[in-house]
Design a binder for these strands. Structure first.
Length: 563
RNA sequence: GCGCCAAUAGCUCAGUUGGAUAGAGCAACGGCCUUCUAAGCCGUGUGCCCGGGGUUCGAAUCCCUGUUGGCGCGCCA
């Protein structure tokens, strides 16, 4: 148990006993014990913890909040606790001021747990599938995928730090309509390169990458003459060859890009495998058996409207081909039923939010608790160049790729940048800022704190007797206390980030921690004549360095020793 | 038309399960390096928390409503 958890459970228990004691003493009468909430006051003058219990009771106790608060405070037993004193303030807040020792406990906690400081086990034993990015494999990844990658990966990491057994998953859309379009586009470029007359499909992929694929294909095959045999094939056979060829290359490219981005997937799940393994059929049969499917105009429909949605959705088209929705149902049943994940979470772009309700409806129809499926909706990224939105079209191949982005600003900057704001806020990616002004980026601010600490410690190896126990009670400066307080917050920050599915909280914490260290650094010298104080401060910055390292690990960002 | 997301300082944004005097970065101005990394620190001030109702002891936060912006509403994925 980390120190904050110990404190909150202890204080809550003492408050509950005090309320009980006050009631027994006849100070007030209440029918039921309300939930006791502890909060951390914004103003330091109000102590480390505060409860509003006295303001929740007046209705049933028929007494003024202050009177209730006084009665509770009279009965609070602080024996054997870290509570220094209890007071009443404002409209009836009960404030707890702690003994300075609690901060030492936080520092010792860090030193004891090391690389594991911040890990908790509240979700131990539960499996968690996190699907993110899942970019269309028909072309290179774009900047929206970059945001999804950073958010998803750090979300996965926070989940792992709270005890979940996490699987990072990429759904490869290697089946269906867009693959057909991909094949049409490849074939058209091939015929063009071969000098055959051809009209490029109107809704085809116009990017250069398509032409490059086929140019390379021809070269690898030994030139145009050697490729003449493909002209004799049927168009469908030929497209199948090209799709196989280009898909493999694209997939390898995406895997390489994601690896470079610090994202390592456990599973690359093929949509096509759902067809090959009969899971599409099986899912359809299941829905049919539940009576959720009907036929209309030659197509098979899912009764989405039975689940509060506006209209029904097609599962199998009149031409016999399953829709993307059908595949998605089979896929999520695979996650939740076949593979039995306790939770399945998807990170989707805002342009997909309309699909949440119907997918959950399908899960419900299939007899699966829809709450086991959660969607994190990420608002779309807007590229800003020269202060104006930069329009790009993936179809025309003008998108800025993930690899271009990484060339420009590097993995560390990109990962932090995309986790500066919560997923559900709109995000403007300023190209000029990323290109020219990396000093403004908070990632350097955080890393600089780590490098500074390392530098100090490097120079002090001989000055401190590390076998002795440091006297942390010497750390009384406000800057020292602020730093220690922040250090104690990491476990709860991770738990909150996971619970709210908001990885930006980790980034904000990292910035706050770095700021607390820089402030401390400027206010307090570590290398001082007083050997005991020096020892205590070395211990403090050693802990701060460890926490910075752990938080950078979660963010997937390097913790440099020098800058 | 219906649905989802957003609106807080000049700009970009924090703001914890509703709490006490709404914060930070950038920008502007002024200060801090003979001593552990100045990619840093300290100081100076600015708010119709989009408007209007409501709930509450208490609302930037919750509910209703309006406005503005983004996205979606296909036998596309």
């Amino acid at each position: 148990m980390y120190i904050r958890e110990q404190l909150t459970t202890d204080i809550k228990a003492r408050v509950a006993r005090a309320v009980e004691a006050a009631r027994e003493a006849g100070d007030f009468d209440i029918a039921a014990m309300p939930e006791i909430m502890l909060e951390i006051p914004r103003e330091k003058q109000f102590g480390e913890y505060s409860t509003n219990i006295a303001m929740q009771l007046p209705k049933q106790a028929h007494k003024a909040p202050k009177v209730i608060a006084e009665a509770i405070v009279r009965h609070v037993d602080t024996e054997g606790s870290l509570i220094d004193n209890v007071s009443i303030a404002g409209p009836g807040f009960i404030n707890f001021k702690l003994k300075a020792e609690w901060l030492s406990a936080a520092v010792n906690d860090v030193l004891e747990k090391g690389d594991d400081y911040g890990r908790t086990d509240g979700n131990a034993g539960k499996t968690y599938n996190l699907e993110f990015v899942s970019a269309n494999p028909t072309g290179p990844m774009h900047i929206g995928n970059a945001r999804g990658g950073a958010i998803g990966d750090i979300l996965a990491e926070t989940a792992a730090w709270t005890g979940y057994d996490v699987t990072r998953e990429f759904y490869v859309n290697d089946a269906g309509n867009q693959i057909a379009k991909f094949g049409d586009s490849l074939d058209a470029r091939f015929l063009e390169l071969m000098g055959e007359p051809v009209t490029f499909p109107e809704d085809g992929y116009q990017g250069e990458d398509i032409t490059n694929h086929m140019a390379n294909f021809i070269e690898n095959a030994g030139g145009k003459d050697a490729c003449a045999k493909y002209l004799d094939m049927s168009a469908d056979e030929r497209k199948a060859v090209f799709v196989d060829y280009a898909l493999e290359i694209n997939l390898a490219g995406m895997q390489a890009d994601m690896a470079r981005y610090g994202v390592h997937y456990d599973v690359w799940f093929s949509e096509q495998s759902l067809y090959d393994d009969g899971e599409i059929e099986h899912a359809l049969d299941l829905l049919k058996a539940k009576g959720a499917v009907y036929e209309k105009e030659g197509a098979l429909w899912f009764k989405t409207t039975d689940y509060g949605c506006e209209k029904d959705d097609v599962l199998i088209r009149a031409n016999g081909l399953p829709t993307y929705f059908m595949g998605d149902i089979a896929y999520h049943l695979n996650k939740l039923v076949t593979r039995k994940f306790d939770r399945a979470v998807n990170v989707w772009g805002a342009d997909h939010h309309g699909h949440i309700a119907r997918l959950k409806a399908a899960m419900q129809a299939a007899g699966v608790d829809p709450d086991r499926l959660e969607i994190v909706i990420m608002q779309l990224v807007r590229l800003i160049k020269n202060g104006e939105p930069y329009r790009m079209s993936k179809r025309k191949g003008k998108a800025l790729g993930l690899s271009d982005l990484l060339d420009m600003c590097g993995t560390d900057v990109a990962r932090v940048f995309f986790n500066l704001r919560s997923p559900d806020s709109h995000f403007d990616f300023d190209l000029d800022l990323a290109l020219t002004n990396s000093n403004d980026n908070p990632v350097f601010y955080i890393q600089y704190a780590h490098a500074r600490i390392t530098s100090i410690l490097r120079q002090m190896t001989d000055d401190v007797n590390t076998t002795a126990t440091p006297d942390l009670s010497l750390l009384t400066a406000p800057e020292e206390r602020d730093l220690m307080t922040l250090i104690s917050d990491l476990p709860e920050t991770i738990i909150t980030a996971e619970a709210k599915m908001d990885p930006s909280r980790i980034t904000h914490y990292a910035i706050d921690l770095a700021s607390a260290f820089h402030t401390f650094y400027n206010a307090c010298r570590v290398r001082v004549d007083d050997a005991d104080l020096m020892h205590a401060r070395v211990t403090l910055i050693t802990a701060a360095k460890q926490v910075l390292k752990n938080v950078l690990t979660i963010l997937g960002v390097d913790a440099p020793d020098r800058m």
